[in-house]
Computed example of a mutant assay.
Amino acid sequence: MEDKKADIYNCGKELFSSKGFKDTNVADITKKAGVSVGTFYNYYPSKEKLFMEIFMNENVKLKKRMMSSVNPEDTPLDFIKGFLSMNIAGMKSNPILKEWYNRDVFNKIENLYRQENGNDSVNFIYGNSLEMVTKWQGEGKMRSDLSSELIMAIFAALINIDTHKEEIGLQYFPEVLDSITEFVIKGLMDTGK
């Protein structure tokens, strides 16, 4: 039974990667996996649910690579800029994660992602980053008049700015993101000393 689910998952991942979310349908996946449509629905209630499972797993892999690549001794500004840069590069280089930037797909899957507690799937990042923020606060490198949880919410907002690059303007987006990040982090580093 689990082999069939793995086949559906792997074939879905391959098709979503090559054809995209929009141009992949359940019939394509079941044909490639060699299972019936009914078998697909025994494991996944919809194409969207399968896609989200694949997306979440790919997102976790990316975030683990990022966490192993960052230098915790960097200044908060260098750390966050590096983290954002790696996140954008990783999202753009992975065809599954890249779908997050496709407006049609994004609108369709965003609510599902939120409902599925997408943020909970990368809680290890939150925990590690929260510890780092608390450390920076203790060392006087970051404001202590704000809770570390609020600072983490600000970091999450910075990460999510890239989903609005079309509204910002593609020609300005990289500079806007870099400038906003610098302004925000420098403001968080201003400890009044």
Rank of each mutant, 00 (worst) to 15 (best):
F183M: 13
G118H: 07
V133T: 07
I109H: 03
K135F: 06
F124S: 08
E99Q: 15
L97H: 03
D190H: 05
L84T: 04
S129Q: 14
F21Q: 00
W136V: 05
Y113A: 09
I8W: 00
G192R: 04
A156P: 07
L188N: 00
F79L: 07
S46L: 00
P76I: 04
N94S: 04
K92N: 11
F21M: 01
T163F: 11
F173N: 00
Q137P: 04
V35E: 04
S148D: 10
K31Q: 10
K61M: 15
F16K: 05
R114T: 14
S17D: 03
N25H: 12
S121C: 09
F16L: 06
F124Y: 12
M1H: 11
L130W: 01
N57E: 14
L15T: 03
S69E: 09
L97C: 02
D120F: 11
G169N: 00
S147P: 03
E14I: 12
M67I: 09
G34Y: 02
F83T: 10
I161E: 05
F155L: 14
M142C: 04
T24H: 01
L158E: 01
M66G: 05
E167M: 15
N117Q: 10
S46Y: 00
L112D: 10
G118C: 09
I54K: 02
F106I: 08
N119L: 12
E182H: 06
N42S: 12
R103F: 13
L77D: 04
E149D: 15
Y113Q: 07
F79T: 02
L150P: 02
T181Q: 05
F79A: 00
Y172H: 11
F173M: 03
S144N: 14
D120C: 10
E110R: 14
V133Q: 03
M132G: 07
R114S: 11
K31R: 13
D145G: 03
K98D: 14
I54S: 02
E175P: 05
A6D: 15
F155K: 07
T30G: 01
Q115P: 05
F40W: 08
G34L: 01
L62E: 05
K98P: 08
V60C: 04
